[in-house]
Nucleic acid binder design. Structure first.
Lengths: 250, 250
DNA sequence: TAGTGGTCTAGACCACCCT
DNA sequence: GGGTGGTCTAGACCACTAA
């Protein structure tokens, strides 16, 4: 086909949605397959040529869709090898979502000790944060995270029971996002963190082994899935005596 | 020319630098012109076609270079109008580098009151942060920033005198990055922030009008120019009673 | 050596903006 | 209407990887 590029433009315009590029449509279709688990994490997608033939577009259009997905950290592209579904292994999470760094620049991933796991009806704050219906059930996890022998973070997580059924009865691993992907097919694609400085309350201080009132970072994180649905609410209280939160802005 | 795409690849390979794409070379050349002030902020660059003809590459290659620069916030592209040198006006800085947001979600830019300006020889910490030579001179600025009538941030800035000659004798505006660009041709392209929770010291507490020891965020920011040279070191102590630091991660 | 993604080109048409 | 960036295609060659 040497025909001009008309494609679906007309259809999109007729729908009253002011034009959606073909590559964006291709991206949407590929993301749909990712969400549906057509390809497992770490597995290679078909080659650009194959996808192009199958979807009826040019290789260049598939490429632009895949490049966009790579920019969103949904796939990883490797020259000479292929395009792979992104994995949620420890390393990736550490660099992507875990922003606490040693003052000497060292990036170590903390160990976790679960303090409690419980199932309950969501309270008002949880419903608000996770956009839940009235009477929705949630799982609450409280844990202490340490670098080596030094306690540094105490955090409370709240998760919708509908998205993570049976979680409260499971063993809780250190790397939660890996568990979400593996057992529940949920990929955390982005997070929004609100950070404040607070004085540690008596309970947190005791758990962390510091005097009550010690200054700490309170990080309020909402994690969103690929479809931008809230899947986890996490409030972390972090000591920053020997660590800091690193934020690089462009 | 219907000739294949050979271009400078050979030359780059011969230099022992394992291959640098043409579009990256084009990007470098265009950035060089930006730095040299060939086009002023807010001014349009020549069209893709003109640049392509001038640089002896295809329009597509220029496009990829410009897209990369747009991703780095160095230029702004507007369909139907042209490609413009990014401006450092208040709005852009607010959304790009200023991460303090009201708890109600409101983004307001604080007013500043300069407490002191001085010129001095850089101390060890300043030399280290800004990568300065021994005996280098710096300008120090200390200022209080308030939202409305409420003091919220007290910060100390250190700037190399070689990059900002005569700054200590100038009027200090609220929007510093605009001043850097306008009067010194320095564009802040990225920042690295290290955040800790601290108890306010007596001096900062008095300036902010809170009891000494009140928890606050200490934000240690290093600002880099387009050429990745350190141009400003800023330590801010922020109250977060009614504000928070917002960090969105993908 | 074959297959993959990465780069580069050339040309067409589309959406948008200004005059 | 004429110019700009944005999309799409088609085809060629380059760089990298693995068998």
């Amino acid at each position: 086909m040497t025909a001009p590029a008309t494609t679906e433009t007309g259809a999109a315009a007729e729908e009253g949605l002011g034009f959606r590029p073909l590559y964006a449509q291709v991206r949407d279709r590929l993301i749909r397959r990712l969400v549906d688990g057509v390809w497992a994490p770490g597995e290679p997608l078909p080659s650009e040529m194959q996808l192009a033939a199958e979807l009826g577009v040019s290789q260049g259009t598939v490429r632009k869709a895949l490049d966009a997905m790579a920019a969103e950290n949904l796939v990883v592209r490797r020259q000479g090898r292929g395009t792979f579904v992104a994995r949620h292994d420890e390393e990736r999470i550490m660099f992507q979502f875990f922003k606490l760094v040693g003052d000497d620049g060292a990036r170590t991933f903390p160990q976790s000790r679960v303090l409690s796991v419980s199932a309950a009806r969501a309270n008002a704050g949880e419903r608000d944060a996770l956009k839940l219906e009235r009477d929705a059930k949630v799982v609450r996890i409280r844990r202490l995270r340490s670098f080596g022998e030094t306690p540094a973070i105490v955090e409370t997580l709240t998760l919708p029971e509908t998205i993570f059924p049976g979680l409260s009865a499971m063993e809780i691993p250190n790397n939660l996002y890996g568990l979400y992907a593996m057992h529940f097919g949920v990929t955390v694609a982005s997070t929004r963190e609100r950070i404040k400085a607070v004085a540690t309350c008596a309970q947190d201080a005791e758990t962390l082994g510091v005097p009550a009132g010690t200054p700490a970072l309170k990080i309020d994180r909402l994690a969103l899935s690929i479809e931008r649905q809230p899947v986890e609410w996490r409030v972390s209280v972090c000591l920053t005596e020997r660590f800091h939160y690193l934020s690089e802005l462009r």
